[in-house]
Design a protein around this nucleic acid. Structure first.
Lengths: 246, 246
DNA sequence: TTATAAAACGTACAAATGACGTTTGTTTTA
DNA sequence: TAAAACAAACGTCATTTGTACGTTTTATAA
């Protein structure tokens, strides 16, 4: 970590998706932006933004995103995807969207490389963070600064597509989970209802969904069978099936 | 179009995929890079690169990519996808990979926003181009400069995934095509063999594959039925099917 | 002991897929 | 002019997968 590239016009922005096992909901981690004018203390902006920062001189893009996530959540080794770059010349040029960095006005064109991360909300300790970070339901977003609403919506679309094609869903689950836990995550992300009986059969038949010699404990009804996901088995058995799905 | 951002460290690079109906092959448009040292005229680089250029001050990223494609091929309105940004700090720092722009050495870190385009090779007139542009089979690429091999391979992977999920294949076909034409494109892109009888049945049953009152002309065997693709019908009937395919 | 409710299993049918064989129709050649 | 050649187009069948439900099991709580 050395210093910032002078006058850098490249940044990373992180869309942090957090799944909350308790509420069974997909959430988004945003930080409060609250700025007053220097002269009359009138509130200029009072909204939320994604976390992002400029890239250090000798830093890879991926590493910059990882660093930003760590600063925000303390987490490392989370699932990460670079999904799009945003760089329209006017994307930071709204009257109210003047960005302040180290007390300097910063409103020239900035290209941001946008990433999304998958985390479990329970893993994040918001009180340890210097930013005013909060979780928001993906379906009830607050007022957002810059073009961050657009970035979020594109990240969400990408996530939905991705979770249908690859087993990233298990990034949001504990090591030991029930079939219904998996269904809950799918339903939260995709915002759909799934037939439990068919879903259960489909999942149980996967070789990489491995039943454990354990059941749920501390539940007030019939405890469910616990399973784990084996990435090894998945990777070994997996060969791209060229199913033309148009 | 105004002037370049001074000391800009952002560029676009274009991966131009071209389908050749005659050879039934997927090709890539690359430009020759040939540089000698100033002192002893030793050949420093003699390889190929993608076309790319820096972004004008008031230009959107997408527009920059479109401009680069037009300068290279004369084509506009081609299918375009921004698929990844590449910006590792050392990506242009190889000894031989010094980039010259307007006779000035340019070797600091540059982030490039990479796009791919789909074109028909027959639409491109290479002689009209000031660059030494050539088509290469996707399976027989020449020596490539910078990190362009990596960029190409990632573009190709993205294309393969994309063409399985969305009907972008028709961007590579004439308005009127036969079922076998479509199969040829899939086989070229995915590098697989498809059973013609099953493929034909599958395609004919799609409502947006519309049979015309026309057949092939000038063929030396039984002329095939011609079809067209209706994007209207596709868009109307299409609702995302949440088929979990893990 | 029984009621409860989620977990887990089962059935029936429709639709899609995969692996083939057969027929059709046009052009070429014998 | 008939036959050969060959791609186009159609057909069959077993298997898998998807969809829509009904039923049984089982641990806990009343």
């Amino acid at each position: 970590m050395t210093e910032l590239i002078k006058n850098s016009n490249i940044s990373v922005d992180c869309v942090v998706f957090g799944y909350d096992t308790n509420t069974k909901s997909l959430n988004l981690l945003l930080i409060k932006r609250y700025l007053e004018s220097e002269t009359d203390h009138k509130v200029l902006v009072d909204d939320y933004v994604l976390t992002g920062y400029h890239i250090y001189e000798h830093e890879k893009l991926d590493d910059a995103a990882t660093r930003v996530l760590k600063e925000l959540t303390g987490l490392t080794n989370q699932y990460k995807k670079q999904f799009k770059a945003f760089g329209d010349p006017d994307r930071l040029r709204n009257e109210k969207d003047i960005l302040w960095i180290d007390n300097e006005k910063f409103n020239f064109r900035t290209v941001t490389i946008a990433y999304y991360f998958l985390v479990k909300t329970e893993d994040v300790d918001l009180t340890h963070n210097k930013n005013q970070a909060e979780w928001f339901s993906i379906h009830q977003l607050p007022e957002l600064g810059f073009d961050h609403k657009k970035i979020i919506l594109e990240a969400y679309e990408d996530l939905k597509t991705k979770c249908l094609a690859e087993p990233i869903i298990f990034e949001l689950l504990p090591n030991k989970f029930t079939i219904n836990d998996v269904q809950d995550v799918y339903e939260s992300i995709l915002d759909i209802e799934i037939d439990n009986r068919n879903f259960r059969r489909k999942l149980i038949n996967k070789k990489y969904i491995i039943p454990l010699d354990e059941k749920q404990i501390g539940v007030s009804k019939k405890p469910a069978q616990l399973y784990m996901f084996s990435k090894d088995v998945y990777d070994k058995m997996y060969e791209k099936n060229y199913l033309i799905n148009i």
